[in-house]
Simulated scan of single mutants.
Amino acid sequence: MFDDLHLDHILLTPGPTPIHPRAQQAMMRGMLGHMDPEVFKLNREIQDDLRVMYGTEPEAFTALLAGTGSLGMESGFANLVEQGDEVLVCANGSFGRRMAEMAARYGARVRLVTAHLGEAIRPEDVAAHLDGVQMVAVVHGETSTGVLNPVPEIAELVRSSGALLTVDAVTTAGMEPFHMERWGVDYAYTGAQKCLSAPPGLAPVAISERAFARYSARRTPTPLWYCDFEGLRDYWVEHTYHHTVPVNLHYAFHAALRAALEEGMEARQQRVGEVGSAILTALTPLGFSHYVKRPQDRLPTVLALRLPEGLDDAAVRRALRQREISVTGGLGPTAGVIWRLGLMGEAARPAPYRALMRALEDILGETGLVRRFDEALERHAAGASPVSV
């Protein structure tokens, strides 16, 4: 049931992820102009599908920014923050800190709510700092540490304050249910190369009607012309020229997003859980363990594992790279302490992780990793639908 696929270079990183076959095929089609009616038709379908993926209100504005997820992050602050605005940023890792830096560059007076590395932001700490805030910004899945922040609970607090809520959904949207309207999220973004397994270079965004109204009431023009919300809407809705979009990336993204929606977010979420559990079953006897202590704080799509004592992180990952397998270590304080295994999109399949287990058996001189991995998958399959390779 779990026969290996033919694999080229194996990406087990927190991004980018292996490109979905349908996206790879779509990217090969001939070039069309960015003002072609067929491209506008494609874009409308992308907008509709993004509303489904994000769980937006019916009239929410969705679009693709011609850049990676960091452009999605910056666009939110550029359009929704003005000089002197009070912005509360939840920072418990590298990407929360990046949010704070960007907000400050656009003139915000930044307040920080923090948590120790490997721990989630506490909603009560957010509640204590909401007075007078125009925006709250939080990373849903902190890629740098494998922590899942409690966005629904934070959103409930923010909703009653009148502040806008910006959510970095880079490692969550497209791999598990995301309920933008129900939760009360005003601006959300991700990167095409993460959960959707499309090529890098696009940032899918969703903007609530409330956020667009706040943007329209700005006292000063948006300082970032390239992603000005009005200019984006002119192109995506009115079909007037703003800038040249990467048409072939749009085709690839459309195919990858449609494949994800056809599979269903719940099925994708289950797939992540099953493969992640099998990885842990295989590696625990070697001394690997969860870096994030509380189960509810663990980000399913980025499995952060503390390394066994004595394991030479750099040497083992170098040996894996020689076998065409990429594994990512920690960032900053967690360098040499953890591995961050990506379980997004097409990476969350048994075949690539079986290849990792086989390689580790060879590099570490251990046995039983592949057997334990497959037995764990078999146990899951016996009680639920099989995990597709």
Rank of each mutant, 00 (worst) to 15 (best):
I46N: 06
Q24M: 06
F61V: 12
A91D: 05
M27I: 03
L50E: 07
G69S: 11
L71I: 10
E38R: 15
A60K: 05
R51Q: 13
N79T: 03
T62E: 00
M35R: 09
G33S: 15
R22H: 08
M31D: 12
A66S: 15
P18L: 13
E86I: 06
F77T: 07
V89K: 00
V81W: 02
T68P: 07
A63V: 05
V39D: 06
M28L: 12
M35Q: 14
T17A: 15
N43I: 12
N79K: 09
N43V: 11
A23T: 01
M73N: 08
H20I: 03
E45P: 10
Y54I: 12
P21N: 02
M53D: 01
F77M: 12
M53T: 09
G76P: 04
L71A: 12
E59R: 14
V87H: 02
T56F: 09
S75L: 11
L32F: 06
G67I: 06
R44E: 12
M31F: 14
E45A: 10
Q25A: 15
G84F: 10
L71N: 10
R22E: 10
G67F: 03
Y54G: 13
S70W: 03
L64S: 12
V39H: 05
G76W: 02
E86V: 08
G67N: 09
E38S: 13
D85S: 05
L32K: 12
S75K: 07
D36Y: 02
L64I: 09
L32R: 15
P37S: 01
G67M: 10
R51E: 14
M28H: 13
L64C: 15
G30H: 09
G76T: 06
A78G: 06
G69Q: 08
Q47G: 08
D48I: 08
G72T: 08
G69I: 04
L71V: 10
G67P: 12
M28T: 10
M28V: 00
Q47E: 08
G33V: 03
Q24W: 11
G67R: 09
D48V: 04
P18R: 06
M31S: 05
P37I: 00
E59N: 15
G30Y: 09
L42N: 10
T56P: 07
T56I: 14
G84Q: 05
M28G: 14
M28D: 13
I46H: 01
F77Q: 04
